[in-house]
Design a protein around this nucleic acid. Sequence first.
DNA 1: GTTGAGCGT
Length: 102
Amino acid sequence: MKIYVSNLSFNVQDEELLNLFTPFGAVASAKVITDRETGRSRGFGFVEMEDDNAAQEAMQQLDKTSVDNRSIGVSEARPKSDRSFGNSPFKSDNGGYNKRKW
DNA sequence: GTTGAGCGT
């Protein structure tokens, strides 16, 4: 399950995310999105967990909790389009991500 | 020694 973590402090990074979600279950990957140009944190990240129910658990437990003096937000991540940044400038039909009835 | 909505290359 992919998890979207928002409102992160700018000093929290991948490892911090990992440490946050690890106690709830196996974390496949944890990544804080940093600005590609400057390298600074953008204040949000993604966490991929092996176990789905562990992910749900982590979400409820970590959402709105204070991390580094900031109340973070944890929710299920949107599906990153099957091929959003491939090679074609036309990208996907929706323009980035499936804009269904979320 | 930057800053605060947001869904990653």
